[in-house]
Simulated scan of single mutants.
Amino acid sequence: MSDDRQFGPSGDRCQVERVLSVEHLESLADAWNALAQRDPQARIFQSHTWLCTWLRYHHCDRMEILVARRGDRLTAVLPLCAHTRGFGPLSLRVLRFAADNDSDYCDALSDPEYPQDLGALWTALRERADWHTLDLRYVPERGYTTRLLPAGDAGILVDRQRHDIAPYMDLSKDWRETLPKRQRDSILRRTRRLRERGAVSFEVATHPESVGEMLAQMAKIHVARWQARGQTSMFCFEEYRAWLQALCLRLLPTQQLYLCRLALDDDPVSIGLYFLDGRRLPGYISTFAANYADLGPGHILETMVIDDVRARGLAEIDDFGRGGEEYKLRWAQEANVLDRFLIARKTAAGVPAFWWTARIQPLLWRYHHLGTLAREARRRVALRRL
């Protein structure tokens, strides 16, 4: 669906187009991938494969992906989804990045030869009256979104918050040299204890059958671990399992999938899902069997992943993904800052929504146990609806 308008001075204009269906999005694969190749800040979470697969398996009220094009060439992408909150006259239309809760980094895509075209997408979005608020989460501190919003717009409210961090580790040096001695010795000692129990193997999935097998084992172990804590694993949801499998199978032939398993006598000890994103290795999900918990199997798996990736020259950065959990910080040397942008129209509906999301929600999120309870309540309600 075209916006039927062009933006920019005469002779230097782009056309803005709205993408409202997965079928339309599928048709843009080649142009989207070419843009991602040109964009030095592009991540796998803004890739055509990631978003198109996610949108096929997840619900949002409406896709609202905006693209700028010059002929057949895409020059900017703002991948949004519309969500309705509330009912009837009290309902709000909120725009968020597509797949934000299942992505570590969210942002736009921009062609370095036409950086102004991203601004045209904001202009087109700002001129529309069919949204109340924008809730843009997990934006890198120096991402495009940070430069997207013009200053001095009297018709909107804007709030920028530090939302999360994403720790990472430089793989140029051996982890045996960079980890603190106590941590390193503990991992080596536990690895020896694991090997004393039987035959230890480490395998990376290389064909569809092994992908399906490892994901099924991961789901079983993950569900059991979360149930033991009285919580609901995302693997309890069929659409999540189906999406993850479809995603992995699409990434496998492009050599962007790194799904691995640590086993003892063919019994899964720990399984990890990573991606190969340029020279980065984003860690997405890992889990381990409870009967090996005393050995710290997640850390043993991480050492084997790092050794394999370094030996094969697959990545230079081990990215642990968003979240400042203590186990990540044991490994990481630095962290990327992730921001949240809240934008609301100065209307009777937009202003109260802005103050709720910008001021009250962050107070609740400071208390981790409250967030955990809220997440668990949402998941249990969703399970009852299945």
Rank of each mutant, 00 (worst) to 15 (best):
S2A: 15
Q6V: 15
P9D: 09
V16N: 04
V16T: 06
R18L: 14
V19S: 08
L25Y: 02
S27L: 08
L28I: 08
A29F: 06
A31D: 03
W32N: 12
L35W: 09
D39G: 02
R43Y: 05
R43V: 05
R43C: 13
H48C: 02
C52I: 06
L55E: 03
H59E: 11
C60I: 09
C60T: 11
M63A: 14
M63F: 06
V67D: 02
A68C: 06
G71F: 06
L78H: 05
G86F: 09
G88S: 00
P89F: 08
P89Q: 02
L90T: 12
L90E: 13
S91W: 01
L95Y: 14
R96I: 10
A98Y: 00
C106V: 02
C106W: 02
L109Y: 06
Q116Y: 09
G119V: 01
A124Q: 14
W131Y: 14
Y138N: 12
P140Q: 03
R142E: 15
G143I: 11
T145I: 15
L149H: 15
A151K: 04
G152H: 02
G155E: 02
I156L: 13
V158Q: 09
R160A: 13
R162P: 07
P167Q: 06
D170N: 03
D170Q: 00
S186P: 12
T191K: 08
L194V: 15
R195N: 15
R195M: 13
E196S: 11
A199S: 08
S201E: 10
E209G: 15
A224N: 09
A228L: 07
E238D: 15
E238Q: 04
W243V: 08
C248F: 04
P253V: 00
T254A: 14
Q256F: 04
L257K: 01
L257A: 00
R261S: 06
D266K: 15
Y274N: 08
Y274L: 04
L276E: 13
P282D: 00
Y284E: 08
A293I: 06
G298L: 01
E302N: 10
T303H: 07
T303C: 12
I306M: 12
D308S: 07
L314F: 09
L314A: 04
E316C: 03
W331L: 01
V337F: 06
V337T: 15
D339L: 13
L342N: 06
A358V: 00
L364W: 13
L373F: 10
E376S: 10
E376W: 11
V381D: 10
V381K: 14
R384A: 10
R385I: 06
